[in-house]
């Protein structure tokens, strides 16, 4: 099995997820190569062929240019699998490679099952086993699904990639995260509201518990998108990554994107009516209870 991993680089940084690509390759076994449009000063610790183009020359991500560069690496390697992370880079670029080659794309791979791969669906409640009927096939890996592997003291063997052309999509600027000044990364205690809280009004029950504990209120993406709490409180892969000593998840289902943002937490308590929710896998304590009734009782006990 020949595997071509596609690493990511943006705003002067090689993505940390490169280690998850290597973790996947380790789990799979086989001949591993990598492709990267990045900086020569930040090469991945990887013992193998690295098809490389300098982002200093090629500029910020341009889908058309990166597609052409990557297709060169594919041609040189003739891999069986071309593997991206399921990230803003991966889900943008992987389908373009799939379309250019006319080959299968399996999105959001979370595991392996025989000759196929498992993916999550239906809010993480269900899993599917999907098999590619083409070779090569393109995969995107769900962040957090594979262990991080960081080889040390090794460096890749560079093979240059080159392409030319005018960008179709013009880069204008980056905008930093707008957290509204809320920094959850320094909080020792976070009480997080998930969609299971039920309504904007009931978020007050979560806030009361956070106040009683002297902690901060966090939120999942659906809660923020529904406007129940401000964007700056979002925890997860598109929000803040937190590592409090105590994390109380109220009505949080535990989508992998959310878990990725709180996996560094110390003690995790999940308050949930659904004992099948993925959050229970990371909870040290699961309390099966209706939040509307339970939260006021709990907050009152803490106050007494």
């Amino acid at each position: 099995m020949k595997v071509l991993l596609v690493a990511e680089y943006r705003q002067g940084r090689l993505a940390e997820s490169t280690s998850e690509l290597l973790g996947f390759a380790d789990a799979l076994g086989g001949d591993v190569s990598m492709a990267l449009v990045g900086s020569p000063d930040q090469l991945p610790g990887f013992d193998g062929r690295l098809h490389f183009a300098d982002a200093g020359i090629y500029g910020e991500y341009d889908s058309e240019l990166h597609k052409r560069l990557l297709l060169q690496a594919v041609e040189a390697e003739t891999p069986d699998l071309i593997v991206f992370m399921h990230s803003s880079y991966g889900w943008d670029l992987a389908p373009r490679i799939s379309a250019a080659l006319g080959v299968a794309l399996l999105s959001g791979v979370a595991g392996m099952d025989g000759d196929g791969f498992t993916t999550r669906c239906c809010n993480g409640k269900m899993r599917r086993t999907v098999t590619a009927m083409t070779s090569p096939a393109v995969l995107t890996l769900l962040p957090g699904a594979f262990p991080s592997v960081q080889p040390e003291g090794v460096s890749p063997e560079l093979h240059p990639m080159a392409a030319s052309g005018v960008p179709v999509v013009e880069f204008i600027r980056y905008e930093p995260p707008s957290t509204g000044g809320i920094d959850l990364t320094r909080s020792d205690v976070i009480v997080c509201a998930g969609r299971g809280v039920g309504s904007r009004e009931k978020v007050g029950l979560v806030r009361a518990l956070a106040d009683a504990l002297g902690g901060e209120v966090g939120a999942t993406r659906p809660v923020v998108d529904a406007g129940w709490l401000e964007h700056g409180r979002q925890i997860g892969s598109t929000g803040q990554s937190v590592s409090p000593g105590l994390y109380v998840a109220c009505g949080v289902s535990g989508a992998i994107q959310h878990l990725a943002g709180m996996k560094g937490s110390g003690f995790v308590i999940a308050l949930n009516t659904d004992r099948d929710a993925p959050i229970v896998e990371v909870a040290d304590l699961l309390v099966v209870a209706d939040l509307e009734e339970f939260l006021p009782l709990l907050t009152a006990k803490l106050g007494s």
Binding site: G102, V103, A104, L105, L106, D113, G114, G116, T118, K125, M126, R127, R128, T129, V130, T131, A132, M133, T134, D276
Partner: peptide, 9 residues
């Protein structure tokens, strides 16, 4: 281009 061989909880 793909085949599904399993769907479960």
């Amino acid at each position: 281009l793909t085949r599904v061989s399993g769907f479960s909880h």
